[in-house]
Computed example of a mutant assay.
Amino acid sequence: MIRRIFSIIFMFVVFMCLFTVPAFAAIGETPAKQQQVVNVAHRGASGHAPENTMAAFEKAFEMKSDYIEIDVQMTKDGELIAIHDTTVDRTTNGMGFVGDFTLEEIQQLDAGSWFDEEFAGEQIPTFEEIVDKYRGKVGLLIELKSPELYPGVEEKVADVLTERNMHRPNNNKVIIQSFNHESVQRSKELLPNIPHGVLAGMNWAEVTDEQLQEFAAYADYFNPNRNFVDEELVERVHRSGMEIYAYTVREQKHADELFEAGVDGIITDFPEYVYDFPGQN
């Protein structure tokens, strides 16, 4: 009788282990979709430091972002720099168009105080400076910003990458993108082994399958405004043979919506909204 009671107790314990351990193991785990999403720091970790400065890129690196996004424009004397707006008014203590400044002039501007006095004296960095510091350490998502204003900018970017042997297939984590799709095509011709992406604003909210196929002829990514991303769009982009990185996330709830939609990457001012996991990089 006692042996029978112990046998029943043993079977009950086994049963509980089989059916409750997985449930406990699931607590605190992150959905597989979220773990697979690429974490792109928009203009660096620009929610924490002044955008497109070395401080922002370093913060993104410290936060283990998969990529830093860099806006590339060109100075009056043909030097590549990182800045988003076509004027320096918003993010520096100067005024005027980027293309009207020489490199020496533009680097005399304070690009940090507007964000916080802690960053007073931050300079607008050169593209080469960023590449040399972070290549091989973190991926580079390079945006050709308003390339129509800077004839030859695609060649200059290609030269920087080629001189550093970053143009070879699978050599570095580099992606080039632009809202100017003709510029993307020119860049792809110069750097056929580097993945390229087309950026899509709200004017592409009704993108057709035919248009996606046209993009896929020269682009590897379709990177749209997050406001028109849903699961159906993600599926159509994937069917076209491209991946999809959505921009720009500034709230956790928006990141969560994109996780559910199944995007491949999220471009965000706050890398902590796209959690980093072992094996993600």
Rank of each mutant, 00 (worst) to 15 (best):
A261L: 10
Y247V: 06
I267Y: 09
I267L: 13
D230N: 15
A261M: 09
G262A: 09
S240Q: 00
Q211C: 00
N227R: 13
N227E: 14
F215C: 02
F277W: 09
F270V: 11
G265M: 14
E272C: 08
A219M: 04
N223E: 13
L212T: 01
I266K: 06
V263A: 13
M242V: 03
E206G: 11
R239D: 05
L258G: 08
P271G: 10
F228A: 10
K253Q: 15
R236G: 02
L258R: 08
E260P: 06
F228M: 11
Y218T: 12
F228P: 06
E260W: 06
I266W: 06
M242K: 03
H238V: 01
A217M: 06
D220T: 10
S240M: 00
F259Y: 15
Y247I: 07
F222C: 12
A261W: 09
E210C: 01
V229C: 14
I266R: 04
N223S: 15
I244K: 02
E210I: 04
Y218L: 08
A217S: 12
P271T: 13
A216D: 04
T208G: 07
M242W: 04
A217F: 00
S240C: 00
Y247Q: 07
V234S: 03
R250E: 13
L212V: 01
F277Y: 13
E231G: 13
I267K: 09
N223R: 10
D264G: 08
T268Y: 10
V229R: 14
D269L: 13
R236M: 02
E206W: 09
T208E: 09
L233I: 05
L212N: 02
Y275T: 14
I266T: 05
V229F: 14
E260C: 08
T208W: 10
F259P: 15
A216H: 04
K253V: 14
M242D: 06
T268E: 10
F259E: 14
